[in-house]
Write a protein that binds this DNA or RNA. Sequence first.
DNA 1: CCAAGCTGTCATCAG
DNA 2: TCCTGATGACAGCTT
Length: 514
Amino acid sequence: MCESANCILPARRNPQQGLVPPGSYHAGMTMMAVPGALQPDRDRVTHLHQGELEMDIDWQELMAITDLQELEMPADATYESPHYGPPMQVMPQPGFPLDPSPSSSSLQFCGSSQSTIFKRPYPDMVPAASCQRIGSLRNMDSSFGHVAQVGPSYARMLPAPPSSNSSPSSMQPLTAPVMSMLDHMAMTGSTESGIHDTMGTGSGSQHRTATGLCKPHLQDDLESDSGLSLGSSPPLASPGTATAGGNPYLGAGDNSMNYSDAEPLEMELEQARMRPEFLELYHMDYHQHQLNQCHMSHQSYKMPTSYGHSANIQQQAMPPPPLQGFLPELGTNKEGGINHSTSGGRAEGPYEKHRSPNVRMDMSVSRDQRRAMALKIPLPIEEIINLPVDDFNEHLSKYQLNDAQLALIRDIRRRGKNKVAAQNCRKRKLENIVHLEKEIDLLQAEKVQLTREKSEMGQNLSHLKRKIIELSVEVFGSLRDEEGKPYSPEEYTLQQTNDGNVFLVPRKPVDGSD
DNA sequence: CCAAGCTGTCATCAG
DNA sequence: TCCTGATGACAGCTT
């Protein structure tokens, strides 16, 4: 599955996108799938490690003379992190399914890593170092895959990867420095090709966090939108809880991650998430999980779930060739580095909100999703939000989640529901306003009609009054009393009985003297 | 630069 | 008591 994930993916994608001639640089990807291409021989690894040292020195120099360090490239921290020990230091924790032996097959690795990623609680499932390796492997793999997509011009910029060590099957035994070097190389290739690859590897970014090397990140602004749970939930990962639930993306020992700590990671994850290979990687990872869990159908995940949604959005937002979606915003500085900030010092990642409607939409749904990704929440956002409470709890019970993950899931659910509620509320409010406005119009029209009718009735009344007066005068003028004198209207009035007869009735005295 | 609108989020209340 | 919806208020972003 791992090999298929790493190799079939680009093979499937490239022909569709028509970006790479079959067998050209995608063939470079297939190289990575050669099983056992890189034996974790200690000497060889050491050699690679030394080569990495040299390369790292070069890298440091390069970083020193350019603005690249502002890019928060994870490579340095990845290498310098104390979590990376000697080559063979990557040792699984007890109970970790990975075969610690260097000869462990790729199949074992893939099966135990990817298939168990969501099956088992992350903390005790994957030692952080191994997680880093997984992350590095994935990202590096996908990085090469990305380059392969980019095409020969960009692929040539990549330093040649260590011979045949790009095979997923052979990556697992790689030592941390080797992986770090590979990360360097992938990073270098991306950098030279203009890709803002701050993601590089999950391990690198996490190490920066762990080692305190992380400067205020470019994407801080993106996270400043009061997106943090302000006390509505327990800290995402207190040192205690996080110890049990070390983020698989985090470096070894980086168990103190809380929201604030997670933000840089999320930023980088977000940046990396914009890379199609990462999107598809995560997509596939999750999809595989779905297949394993048989909770959702294949289609149900590929459809509107958050991850797939984002991937689709991003892919839509990326015109072929892929780099065209990023390079115009990135540009390069005079030293050939990357201008990660485009205006006013405000950090703008390659997917700044206003870049395009698609990207903006992606951003709008991505904050919680980024957090979910950061904590490896094994449920898609939409499930978290939309499942009925019973199903939701049942779903949760299928996973062993730590406090941080549970808190995040519940926050996501609460926020998601509240967001929908707020949208409904506003929609309803607008509808009420529209309705009231229409009602006002109707009432005004009715008022006009009533006014007109009143006016007409008044006219009719006046007309009737005049008629009455005329008739009265006529009647009184035609009547004579016993003395032959006409009845005075001042002294008499006409009254009509129920039977229709009309009588002449004397008026009552006004002064009441009688 | 400012104002209006939009949107997400939080706090709170009610069912 | 918990869950959920409704809604006011606030902040950030976009137009």
